[in-house]
Design a protein around this nucleic acid. Sequence first.
DNA 1: CCTTTCATGTAACGAGTTACATGATTGG
DNA 2: CCAATCATGTAACTCGTTACATGAAAGG
Lengths: 182, 182
Amino acid sequence: MALEHAILVSLLEQPGSGYELARRFERSIGRFWTATHQQIYRVLKRMETDDWVVALEVGQDGRPDKRTFSVSDTGRDVLAAWLRQPVQPEAVRHDLAVKVRGAAFDDPAGRAALIGEVERYRAEHEELLTRYLAGEKRDFPDDAAPTTGQRLQHVVLRGGIAYERMLLDWLDEVLTELRKEA
Amino acid sequence: MALEHAILVSLLEQPGSGYELARRFERSIGRFWTATHQQIYRVLKRMETDDWVVALEVGQDGRPDKRTFSVSDTGRDVLAAWLRQPVQPEAVRHDLAVKVRGAAFDDPAGRAALIGEVERYRAEHEELLTRYLAGEKRDFPDDAAPTTGQRLQHVVLRGGIAYERMLLDWLDEVLTELRKEA
DNA sequence: CCTTTCATGTAACGAGTTACATGATTGG
DNA sequence: CCAATCATGTAACTCGTTACATGAAAGG
């Protein structure tokens, strides 16, 4: 129920086309909200109908035309109203935890396969952490005096970093436990 | 796509009725997978049709009859096949992070409201951590020699604990940043 | 008496995923 | 020439949520 709001925040930070939004959702916004381009175009259309955003046609040479969206006053009001509502409890869906508990009912071959998967998963998240840290260094250098917006973006990024570090430590514990059955 | 599998794991750990499953999903399983009773009954019906689980009618006196489900051999095979598949990347949807970034575009009154919400949210998770720790003490005492199943359940619980601790620390950081705008 | 717990569902809707579809330009 | 990037969408489907519905017993 909050893809609309995530789009509003992203467009307030920087106006852009549906395509650009989709790319952002693969990157920075994707740290806390995922969405595919299909979903984004659909929601964006509804938001335009409801006057939460306004489009500006931009003809480009050498590239397809695009429609750049900005947040309207109505959109700002909608976002402000949403910010004042209670934070929804997260819907937790953690595949890996189910698998770890499920491993107790599988044979050694199954557990070996899971160990391999956990290792792969761990490597992925190690890489993600590296990218976060590189992004932090790039976007939030120590000596700069950040704006409010930057400080808030930074604290969200630090949350992502803390999460990944916690996850890596936990995955090591999981691997230790899984290997005990060898 | 894995509610079925979460149900299989839960029923392998302990057979039970739809109602009992719903209660478990509010508690321990709910740490890594959430589901309402409506969803559970619907999926359970499909699983029964596909012979992943078998039901045993249990007449009770003083209480409504119930249907206790156990995992069939087919169900075990399905679970084993799923355990061998790649872990799906999580779909991240973190309301609060969107709001924190959105706060940059709201007035002081909006930020004050968000601070209140974050505090409430923090208190909720502090309580959750307390319950996890109490559950850990109860279910996994130091001196016991645990089975494989218990060790795996324990490591999953430790993941929940690590997550909550990380979250609380991060929320403190968020509060510090939000209060700077006062 | 009234609320909570036990026990099971249906119906309608909203959100998210997967597959399909088109078409131009840039760079190797 | 072929793959990747830019740019926008439709259609079908699955999954998840909210609302509604019923009924009995236990406990205060």
